[in-house]
């Protein structure tokens, strides 16, 4: 059996779980193993039907009053109980923040090895996995051992795809035995931050600045261009490290991942740390004085020149055309 943890938070399913499910099913089909899913709390009829469409024949549903709010160790314990009872060949989760966290807890509880952010896997006594390093700038091929192989699947690496033949899902609800230790670290409150601004992750146009912007004030012209286009402003790690922009504006491996129609990068050298965050952009326009900068090997369009002159000229041209 191959098990996939389906991540949901207050009824909202993380779509990356279905990407993990797609890779898990490929492996299950190769080794002729049944595909099971696990989830915490309740499962809507729509979710159960969708799991069936993805080839799942059993859903293990952990239910416990203490699981209503997120506690990583308690969530992991629910999966460990399925591991103990059903001894799956492998257990998968999305390589999302929670997926990686819960699987790390499962790994620590069971003392099994774990491979995070895999993009490929081959079954066998040991699995051979391909996984992301450096946020995806580099790949590692590795051998993964263990009675149950523990893997998370890197989001956006495998398109979610339903099975050729849908299954009828049997729902197996159970109450996990949680210890006090499982509940020591848990979510006690949530705070929502309502900002009227369009977020970097959602913006259709992102204007990003690097060292070439020169100062915090230098970002004013980038703000102006972003405002004209209804976009958002971000910066490289250099820029947030210098305090020119808050860390929340960082685009990169340790910041935001953007996926705009167009990313206008201004005075950004194009270090791999930054480009990992900009990988999701459909088009990249680089404005840079250096025609040999790394960004030129990633950009689709470029203007060679000083952003302090080019960006205001673009703003003026937009205003002129709009009359």
């Amino acid at each position: 059996m191959i098990l996939v943890y389906i991540e949901q938070d207050r009824g909202k399913v993380n779509e990356a779980s279905f990407e993990a499910l797609t890779l898990a099913r490929q492996l299950a089909e190769m080794s002729n193993a049944p595909l099971h899913a696990s989830a915490i709390g309740s499962a809507s009829d729509a979710l159960v039907a969708r799991l069936g469409a993805f080839g799942v024949n059993t859903l293990h549903l952990a239910q416990h009053a203490q699981l209503n709010e997120y506690a990583p160790a308690a969530y992991a314990q629910s999966i460990v109980e399925i591991l103990n009872a059903h001894k799956p060949d492998a257990a998968f989760a999305a390589g999302a923040e929670r997926g990686n966290e819960i699987m790390a807890h499962v790994a620590a509880k069971t003392n099994l090895p774990m491979a995070a952010n895999c993009v490929q896997a081959q079954t066998g006594e040991d699995y051979v996995v391909t996984r992301l390093r450096w946020g995806g700038s580099l790949l590692e091929e590795a051998k993964l051992k263990g009675a149950t192989k523990l893997l998370t699947v890197a989001p956006n690496s495998i398109p979610a795809q339903a099975a050729a033949h849908a299954q009828t899902v049997a729902v197996d609800a159970f109450t996990p035995q949680l210890s006090e230790n499982d509940l020591r670290a848990r979510v006690v409150a949530r705070v929502e931050t309502a900002s009227g601004k369009i977020s970097l992750g959602e913006a259709r146009v992102v204007v990003g600045g690097g060292r070439g912007v020169g100062s915090a004030e230098g970002f004013k012209i980038l703000e102006e261009l972003a405002d004209l286009l209804g976009g958002a402003v971000g910066g490289s790690r250099v820029v947030t490290g210098l305090g020119w922009r808050p860390h929340a504006d960082q685009i990169g491996q340790t910041g935001n991942r953007i996926q705009p129609e167009l990313y206008i990068s201004c005075g950004v050298s194009g270090a791999i740390q930054h480009m990992v965050g900009a990988k999701g952009a459909k088009h990249i326009l680089a404005i840079n004085t250096d025609p040999d900068a790394s960004i030129m090997f990633k950009a689709d369009y470029a203007v060679i020149g000083d952003l302090h002159q080019v960006v205001p000229a673009i703003c003026a041209e937009i205003r002129k055309r709009r009359g």
Partner: peptide, 24 residues
């Protein structure tokens, strides 16, 4: 239990940058 076999660069897509011009 997680043994590196080798590292590899991700496949690079054929890439061409179109220079739109110089300066303002």
């Amino acid at each position: 239990g997680l043994q590196k076999i080798k590292l590899l660069n991700p496949p690079e897509e054929a890439h061409q940058v179109e220079i739109l011009g110089k300066g303002p």
